[in-house]
Amino acid sequence: MPENLTPNPEAGAPRGKREGKVSNYKIEHFVAPISETPLQGVDAVKETGKPLSMWAEAWRSLRKRPLFIISSILIVAIIVVAALPNLFTSVDPTHCVLENSNGPAVSGHPMGYNFQGCDIYSRAIYGTRASLMVGVFTTILTVLLGTTIGALAGYYGGWLDAVLARLGDVFFALPLILGAIIMMQLPVFRDNKSPWTVIVTLAVFGWPQIARIARGAVIEVRNADFVTASRALGLSRFKALLRHVVPNSLAPIIVVSTVNLGVYIVAEATLSFIGVGLPPDIMSWGNDIASAQTQLRSNPMVLMWPALFLSVTVLSFIMLGDAVRDALDPKARKGA
């Protein structure tokens, strides 16, 4: 029970600092009732609840986010459209009748006709595949190339890092569009334009960004104690990179790549618009937008429809990237 301290006999005696201090005031010795402050076990193990890996935990927080739900529904829809365009329209996008040039929307042709008299809706549906393909494969290529180079540079350091970092800088020094313009001037590319030339071009200038991110992430992880521990357990240096370092460096790469997928689709459209992207005979949103610019003032909707398809697709991927970033970022998760 609270007791008043009786005057301490030692208080008057000179005391050094290292012998504690005694107050000039009366200090009550208070003890909380044990019933109100029960002792709990030291470091008790939580045994209830389902075990959750980091990914599972991220997934749990992800699936509740509206941003994630909306964007993933849209992306699934876009993938279905790209895979099976004939499910969404029965109109042949290449069947163009000049009489219908710039014709308004009529039954069966909800978005009307473009200058050549082709069905805009049908073209937009069939154009999905090329745009999505460029986005997906460019992303895959940049991730493979960028992660490999970035991880090796960051993990081994030294001269390898210096060389690879400079190599990345060289490609970084050429802005994507400028670089792509040059690439597409190459006879090999100029004469064989296809989605693949665009993919390769974008990947060649896109990988340094991923490599920088991968390098940074790997450097952060490579000195972690669990990597040293696995080396002490007998794991070889390279296997430690594969099994521990790379998996722990993936989160930022995934986030950036998701956003990039959208950015590459825009880049393809821009290249096609400038005239160095997909060949005109391939149906893509970029080509449709480019060919619509001539009659922009007379019939702006010819441009707006494919632009809308494009923007919604890109927006979905960027939103997905944002949602994933929030779910994977430990700082954001704590809600600080």
């Binding site: 301290l5 301490n8 504690g20 201090k21 005694v22 107050s23 005031y25 200090i27 009550e28 010795h29 208070f30 003890v31 909380a32 044990i34 109100e36 402050t37 002792l39 709990q40």
Partner: peptide, 28 residues
């Protein structure tokens, strides 16, 4: 001069420093 011991958000014991150290009351 004075020490306050906190445990799980509550003050479980407080008092003069030396007294508390030499003659602790609360099990924590």
């Amino acid at each position: 001069e004075k020490v306050i011991v906190m445990y799980k958000g509550q003050v479980v014991e407080s008092g003069p420093a030396l007294e508390l150290l030499r003659n602790p009351q609360h099990p924590y």
